[in-house]
Amino acid sequence: MELIIAKYNYWIYIMLMMIGFYAMIAKKNLVKKLVGMNIFQTAIILFFVSTASKKGGATIPIIHKGQEIINPAHYMNPLPHVLMLTAIVVMVSTFGVALALAIMIYKKYKTLEEDEIIEILRNRR
């Protein structure tokens, strides 16, 4: 119990990730798969961002003008945020490409259900 509460951020991210993972693998609808993919990716972003925080009310690392003493313990670690900015860009573009593909598929098969598409492909053969 102690473990769960102390590390709640990890548990949440793992839960989210598993939900997304399930959707990506098990759902038959292509858009649902993509939604799952987004949840999956967001979970990882959350995980990274949560690692940046520090106990004791650390805040965003913006330094006031004229501030003399800088104690790192008072500020969150900015690097994970920066990394995640990059990662978000990557993920958004992945999502964009995937949606474009979904549109292509829809135009071709008039459906987004995976098993129906497989059926169509099989009949075509």
Partner: peptide, 28 residues
Amino acid sequence: RAAMASFNYVIMGTIGACFYLLGVGYLY
């Protein structure tokens, strides 16, 4: 059939990349 193949690749590729990213996170 390329679109469908590519779509599956997106799903798998994203999972792979995310796992890699998690590894990076843990190391960090």
